[in-house]
Design a protein around this nucleic acid. Structure first.
Length: 936
RNA sequence: GCCCAGAUGGCGGAAUUGGUAGACGCGCUAGACUCAAAAUCUUGUUUUCGAAAGGGAGUGCAGGUUCGAUUCCUGUUCUGGGCACCA
C-alpha cells in the first residue's frame, strides 16, 4: 500500500471520486436518449410556463453574462417539475438584426450562413450547461416557417382598426360597414382628426381615396417619418450607428430625411397598456418605467389666433390655469406652420436655425438644456382672454411628436421656459406673487393666482377646470388626455428582416393573400442600400416588380417583430396551419414567469403586450396579457485586467509600482490572469507584440490593475462558459453563477470564486462516497440533530427557490453540507432528500448519486421533500441583551418564559448592573424570540 | 436633461414586518498531513485603542423619526440601465 504512487489510486478509483466530466456527459446523453425534457401539450398535471428572453445569436458567442437568467429559469423549471407541474421551458433565437447584416457587408458572408453558424455555436454552449429545454420546440425568427406567421400577424394588424367605442381591435370590414352607413362622424380618424365625411361622401370616393382613408385607421399603417440619412454612405443609419451627429463608420454627416414608412398604432392601446399593468406582477420599478413611457397626462388643447393671419396655433398644456402667465409660444422646428407664419424679416434667421436643428439628434435636443437655442419667427399669437400679443418662437426643445408640437411658455412656472426667457430677454409675467422669487421657476399647483383676470385669487389646481370650461364655452379649446408614447416605427431600410407581405398596385398598398405566405426573403449577393436610402431589396428588380404596375414593399420589419410573439409559437412550434393552435394557447396560456434584462424594460415588453392584446381582440387567443410575472436579471459586468507598459519600451511594470514610470495602460485577456496575478509566460505568447516583453515585478509577481466595465470582446474581459464547464463542470458553473448574488442585481464577474463552489460539491460527494471505501451511505435512523439540519434546509431551499433567491439557497446547501460533515452523517434518510433538493441546481451530480444509491428511476421526477416543523422547533432562544440599542451580552430564556421573569433576571445580571451604574432603567423592551433592550 | 435602479469588510454578497451588521464563499493568515506539491482538514480575518479583559467607530455622504435604522423620511454625491432604428 505504502509504496503505491498516489496516481495509482486516482486511476483505479474513478467511480469513487467526483468525476464531473464523465458524469455530466453520461447523463446528458441518457436524458437525450430517454427524451427526458420532451414536453406534452396534453397532461393531467397543472401547467407552468417558464420563459427566458431568447438571445440574438451574435458572432461573439455566449459569455458568462448570458446564461445567468437561463440558469435561474432552468432551476425554477426543474423545481416546478419536481413539484408535480407540466413545465414548458424552451429556447430559441431572435435571429434577424443589424449586426449580422453589418457583418455581411464587411465580409460578404451571407446572413443565412453566419446565422446558422452562430446558432450552432450558441447551441453547443447552451448544451454544455445542461439546460432542460425541450429543443424540439426551438424557434428561429429568421426561418421562413416562423416568419410566415410574423407576416400573418402583421396582416392582422394591417387589416384591423381600433374601435374606440368598443375599446378593441376589429377587422377593417366593420369599419367600412360603418362608413357606408353613417360616415365617420362617430369614429374620429386617429391619423387625421380634422377628417370628416358622411356616408354619401364615402360612397362617392374612388378606391384610392377610400383606401387612403382606411390607411389612417389601420393598426399597421403607412405614414411619413424622418430617418437618419447619411448621404456619404448612401444609407439610413440606426441611432446606434450615429455618434455625435456623424456616422460611427467613417464619421460622415448625418441628416434627417423624411421617408414613407410602416407604423404600428400602439397609441390606441396606450390606456389598455397602462391599465393592464394592474393585472401583472412586474416589479414596481418596471411598471413605473412603462407608465412613464406611456406618459398619460391630462390637460387642455387651446387654439391661439395669430395676429394678422388666418391660421391659428394649437397648443397642448397640462397647466391651463397658467394661461395669463404665457409670455411666449414655442413651436417645434418641424411644425408645418413655421414657413407660413415666419415674417419676411425673420426668414433668413429661421432658415439658419432650421439648418442647425437638422444636424441635431432628438437625444441631443432633449439632453442639452444648458445650451439654450431658439429663433423668433416674427409672428404673434393672441391670448384669447385678454388679447395680449405673444411672440411665437421656435426652439429645438419642443418636439414635433409630442402633443401638438407647440407649447405656451410660462416662465414663472416652468424652469425650461424660464431659462429660455432669461436667455432671450423676454419679459416675465408673474402670476403667483411671492411664490415666484424671480431667480427660478416655481412649478407649484397650490399657489394663489394673480395678474390673471377672472382667475385672480383662485388656487391654481381648481383653476384648471375653470379655464377649460371657459375654453370649451368659447369653442377655442377642450379637455384633452395626451400620451407621450408615439406610434411605433415598423420599417427598416435593411435586408436582414422579415419582408412585408404587401404589394403596391399603382402606389396603393394591398395585403398579399394569406395562402401565398411566407413571402421569402430573396437571396442577394450584396447588401448595399438601394437608391435614396431604400433597403437593399429595392435593388432586386425582378423581385420588386411583380407585374407591370405592381411592386413589392422593399422595407423589412424591425428586430422586435419576431420577438413580439415568439412565446406563442413555443406552444405549438410546428403548426403549419396557424401561428399556434387555439387548444395549445388555451392550455399553456400566459407565461407564468418571464426572465430577462432591464434593457428590454419598455420596448420589447410594450410591443409584445400590444400584439397580445390585438390577437386577443381579434379572437385568436384567450388572454390579453402575455406575461403573468416578470423578473429582471441584472447585467454581469466585465472585470477587466490592465497591464502597464513603460512608454516606448517592451517593459511592463506591476500595478503597485506603475506610478514611478510613465506608462500606457493596456487591456489584457482576463483568461491569462489568475485573480490579479498575470501569467507572464502566457502573456508573451498571447500576441506577437508581447513576445519580447519583460516585467518589473513586486514580490515576485506581476499584479494587474482592475477596471469594471462592460463585458465585451474588444476589452478582452469576456469569459466563455465552455472554459469553466471544462474546468469545473456544468453543475459547479450553474451553482456559481447563482451564488454570485441576487439574480436581479447587476454585479461584476470574478472567476476566482468558482473554486469555492466546486469544493462544496466535492465535499458533498464525500458525504456519499469515500475515495478508498466507495459508497459509505448507511440505512441508520437519523438523530434529531441531523433531522434538524435536513428540515431547516428543506424549508430554506423550497422558499428561496420559489422567490428566485438562488444565491442564499446555494449558501444554505453549503451550510447544510458543512453541518452534516461535522455530524459525520452518511445516512440515506438524510442524504436522499438532500439530493432531490439539489437536483434543480446540480442535476448531473444529483442523478449520478441517486443512481449510486440504488434508485432506478430518474431523480428528475422524484417527489420533492416536505418540510416538517417538528424537527426544527426551538424551545429556548439566546437573547441579545442591548443597552440603549447596543448589544452588550447574551442570555438564554425559554420561549414561553414570562416577560417579568425575564426582565428581573436581565436587570440583575452582572453586565446590565455595570451599565446601569446603580440607576433604575427607564424602560425594558422585550421582543419575544428576538431581542431585549434596556434603556438607561 | 428626463425616467428607473443601486451603493454594506481586501472582493462577491447575507441580514423575517425596523430588533445580535458582516451568514455563505473568495482572498489572506497561521498550523496539520507530505521529501515536496496538489488535495484535504484545523485556526483567525470590519476597523481602531488595548498584552488581555474590555472599549470607541462603522452599511456612499449630511440630516431626521425611533428604546432601537443597512431597513422608514428629507436632501445630496457617485455608478449602472433606458430614452423610441443595437438587441
Amino acid at each position: 500500500m505504502y509504496c503505491l504512487h498516489p496516481l495509482y489510486y486516482r486511476s483505479s478509483t474513478t467511480d469513487m471520486e467526483y468525476n464531473f466530466r464523465a458524469i455530466e456527459k453520461k447523463w446528458q446523453q441518457q436524458w437525450q436518449e430517454s427524451h427526458a425534457y420532451k414536453v406534452s401539450n396534453d397532461s393531467p398535471k397543472p401547467k407552468c410556463y417558464v420563459l427566458d428572453m431568447f438571445p440574438y445569436p451574435s458572432g461573439a458567442g455566449l459569455h458568462v453574462g448570458h446564461p445567468l437568467g437561463y440558469i435561474a429559469t432552468d432551476i425554477y423549471a426543474r423545481y416546478k417539475r419536481l413539484k408535480g407541474f407540466n413545465v414548458l421551458h424552451t429556447m430559441g433565437y431572435d435571429a434577424f438584426g443589424l449586426p449580422t447584416e453589418q457583418y455581411a457587408l464587411e465580409t460578404g458572408q451571407h446572413p443565412i450562413v453566419t446565422t446558422e453558424q452562430n446558432i450552432k455555436a450558441f447551441r453547443e454552449q447552451l448544451d454544455n450547461i445542461g439546460f432542460c429545454y425541450d429543443w424540439d420546440r426551438q424557434v428561429n425568427t429568421s426561418d421562413p416557417s416562423y416568419y410566415k406567421w410574423t407576416q400573418w400577424i402583421f396582416l392582422q394588424l394591417f387589416e384591423s382598426w381600433y374601435n374606440r367605442s368598443s375599446q378593441q381591435a376589429e377587422p377593417v370590414s366593420t369599419l367600412t360597414a360603418i362608413f357606408e352607413k353613417e360616415g365617420n362622424t362617430r369614429h374620429i380618424c386617429p391619423g387625421d382628426r380634422q377628417l370628416q365625411f358622411s356616408a354619401e361622401e364615402w360612397k362617392g370616393f374612388d378606391e384610392a381615396v377610400q383606401r387612403n382613408i382606411i390607411m389612417q385607421y389601420r393598426l399597421g399603417y403607412l405614414d411619413y417619418a424622418e430617418v437618419n440619412w447619411c448621404p456619404a454612405l448612401g444609407t439610413v443609419l440606426a441611432n446606434d450607428e450615429v455618434v455625435n451627429g456623424v456616422s460611427e463608420r467613417g464619421g460622415y454627416p448625418v441628416i434627417k430625411k423624411k421617408m414613407r414608412q410602416w407604423f404600428l398604432r400602439i397609441t390606441e392601446y396606450a390606456n389598455r397598456l397602462l391599465e393592464g399593468l394592474e393585472k401583472v406582477s412586474f416589479s414596481d420599478a418596471m411598471k413605473e418605467m412603462q407608465r412613464n413611457w406611456i406618459g398619460k397626462s391630462q390637460g387642455a388643447e387651446i387654439k391661439f389666433a395669430l395676429k394678422n393671419a388666418a391660421a391659428h396655433i394649437e397648443v397642448y398644456t397640462t397647466r391651463p390655469d397658467t394661461i395669463f402667465g404665457v409670455d411666449f409660444m414655442v413651436i417645434a422646428p418641424e411644425h408645418e406652420l413655421i414657413q407660413q407664419i415666419t415674417t419676411p424679416e425673420q426668414q433668413s434667421e429661421i432658415e439658419k436655425y432650421l439648418d442647425y436643428v437638422q444636424s441635431r439628434s432628438e437625444r441631443e435636443r432633449m439632453a442639452d438644456v444648458k445650451q439654450i437655442t431658439g429663433c423668433f419667427t416674427g409672428a404673434y399669437a393672441i391670448n384669447p382672454f385678454n388679447g395680449r400679443e405673444i411672440p411665437v418662437w421656435t426652439a429645438e426643445y419642443v418636439l414635433a411628436g409630442y402633443g401638438t408640437g407647440a407649447i405656451m411658455a410660462v416662465p414663472c412656472g416652468d424652469q425650461r421656459d424660464f431659462g429660455f426667457a432669461r436667455h432671450f430677454n423676454i419679459p416675465i409675467t408673474n402670476i403667483i406673487g411671492d411664490a415666484f422669487n424671480g431667480n427660478e421657476a416655481n412649478p407649484t399647483k397650490d399657489a394663489i393666482l394673480q395678474n390673471s383676470d377672472f382667475l385672480n385669487g383662485m388656487v391654481m389646481r381648481p383653476a384648471m377646470d375653470v379655464v377649460i370650461n371657459k375654453l370649451e364655452e368659447m369653442r377655442i379649446g377642450k379637455r384633452q388626455i395626451n400620451y407621450k408614447m408615439r406610434d411605433a416605427g415598423f420599417s427598416r431600410q435593411r435586408y436582414w428582416g422579415e419582408p412585408f407581405p404587401i404589394i403596391y398596385k399603382d402606389g396603393i398598398p394591398y395585403a398579399m393573400d394569406e395562402k401565398d405566405l411566407p413571402l421569402e426573403l430573396p437571396y442577394v449577393e450584396n447588401y448595399k442600400p438601394g437608391e435614396e436610402g431604400e433597403g437593399p431589396l429595392a435593388n432586386i428588380t425582378d423581385w420588386v416588380n411583380v407585374a407591370p404596375g405592381i411592386k413589392r414593399e422593399t422595407n423589412t420589419m424591425p428586430g422586435y417583430a419576431g420577438s413580439s410573439w415568439y412565446f406563442l409559437r413555443y406552444m405549438d412550434p410546428h403548426n403549419n396551419n396557424t401561428f399556434a393552435d387555439r387548444k395549445a394557447t388555451d392550455y399553456w396560456n400566459q407565461v407564468d414567469v418571464y426572465v430577462g434584462g432591464t434593457e428590454h424594460a419598455v420596448g420589447h415588453l410594450l410591443y409584445s403586450r400590444m400584439w397580445t392584446k390585438v390577437l386577443f381582440d381579434l379572437g385568436h387567443i384567450g388572454f390579453d396579457e402575455p406575461f403573468k410575472s416578470l423578473i429582471n436579471q441584472g447585467m454581469i459586468g466585465g472585470s477587466s485586467r490592465l497591464v502597464y507598459r513603460i512608454r516606448g519600451t517592451h517593459q511592463f511594470v506591476s500595478a503597485g509600482l506603475k506610478d514611478q514610470y510613465e506608462t500606457d495602460e493596456l487591456h489584457v485577456d482576463v483568461n491569462i490572469v489568475d485573480g490579479v496575478e498575470l501569467d507572464t509566460e502566457a502573456f508573451r505568447k498571447w500576441k506577437p507584440d508581447f513576445s519580447e516583453a519583460t516585467f518589473i515585478l513586486e514580490d515576485g509577481k506581476y499584479i494587474c490593475g482592475v477596471q469594471l466595465e462592460k463585458m465585451s470582446k474588444r476589452l478582452f474581459n469576456t469569459v466563455n462558459p465552455n472554459d469553466l464547464v471544462e474546468k469545473f463542470g456544468a453543475d459547479t458553473f450553474r451553482m456559481y453563477e447563482m451564488f454570485l448574488g441576487p439574480v436581479e442585481q447587476s454585479k461584476p464577474w470574478d472567476t476566482k470564486g468558482i473554486e469555492g463552489v466546486h469544493r462544496f460539491l466535492k465535499k458533498l460527494w464525500r458525504l456519499f462516497s469515500d475515495e478508498q471505501k466507495g459508497l459509505i451511505v448507511t440505512n441508520d435512523t437519523p438523530t434529531p440533530a441531523e433531522q434538524k439540519v435536513l428540515h431547516k434546509t428543506i424549508h430554506k431551499i423550497d422558499g428561496d427557490t420559489t422567490t428566485f433567491s438562488f444565491n442564499t439557497a446555494v449558501s444554505q446547501f453549503m451550510i447544510c453540507v458543512n453541518e452534516l460533515y461535522t455530524l459525520k452523517c452518511h445516512k440515506r434518510a438524510v442524504l436522499e432528500p438532500l439530493l432531490i433538493l439539489l437536483t434543480p441546481y446540480a442535476p448531473h451530480l444529483s442523478e449520478e448519486l441517486w443512481h449510486q444509491l440504488g434508485n432506478t428511476s430518474s431523480i428528475l421526477d422524484a417527489p420533492y421533500p416536505v418540510y416538517d416543523e417538528q424537527f426544527t422547533k426551538e424551545s429556548a432562544f439566546n437573547y441579545p441583551i442591548a443597552i440603549n440599542g447596543k448589544t452588550r451580552a447574551e442570555m438564554g430564556f425559554a420561549l414561553d418564559a414570562d416577560n417579568s421573569a425575564i426582565e428581573q433576571e436581565v436587570l440583575s445580571s452582572e453586565i446590565v448592573q455595570k451599565w446601569l451604574e446603580g440607576k433604575a432603567p427607564k424602560k425594558v423592551i422585550i421582543v419575544k424570540g428576538r431581542m431585549i433592550n434596556v434603556v438607561v
